[in-house]
């Protein structure tokens, strides 16, 4: 495997770990379940900190996703090379980026979304996150690849 591919995987893995952690940190669960009491994890109960970390990780994930996507096509990548697992992960990632971007816009001052739209976005974002986590776990266990 090329060093560039290793680096990509490394960045993707770390980003996915922290974006998931900070994402779950948006819910008031880490303090309730003593996880924030573990030395070094106190930040998980600080909502403004997890909010910023989530934004930073999202920036890295968006940049990396678009880099891989364009790199794939620039190198003559064809859609039929993408595996079924790859397609499912792309759907989850695209959905996460779109719903996440809309939620970032929603959080800007003087921006008003319909209440039902906000609830739908929150639930979709959580659902897509769970979907990506399950797919990632399957990929690891069954050694499924993005491309054939």
């Amino acid at each position: 495997m090329k060093p560039n591919t290793y680096l990509r995987r490394y960045i993707y893995g770390i980003t996915l770990f922290f974006i998931t952690l900070s994402g779950f940190g948006q819910m008031p669960i880490f303090k309730r379940y003593y996880i924030a009491d573990i030395p070094g994890l106190g930040w998980l109960a600080q909502f403004y900190v997890t909010h910023i970390i989530h934004y930073i990780c999202a920036s890295v994930l968006i940049a990396l996703t678009l880099y891989i996507l364009f790199d794939f096509f620039f190198n003559g990548g064809l859609l039929d090379k993408i595996t079924r697992m790859g397609f499912l992960k792309i759907i989850a990632l695209t959905g996460l980026i779109i719903t996440g971007a809309l939620m970032v816009v929603k959080n800007l001052p003087n921006v008003f979304f319909a209440h039902n739209a906000i609830i739908a976005l929150d639930l979709m974002h959580l659902g897509l996150c769970m979907m990506l986590l399950v797919l990632g776990l399957f990929s690891l266990i069954l050694k499924k690849r993005w491309v054939s």
Partner: peptide, 11 residues
């Protein structure tokens, strides 16, 4: 900047 950075890096 993130999406721009990703595309520019690939290009």
């Amino acid at each position: 900047i993130a999406p721009i950075a990703g595309v520019v890096a690939a290009f």
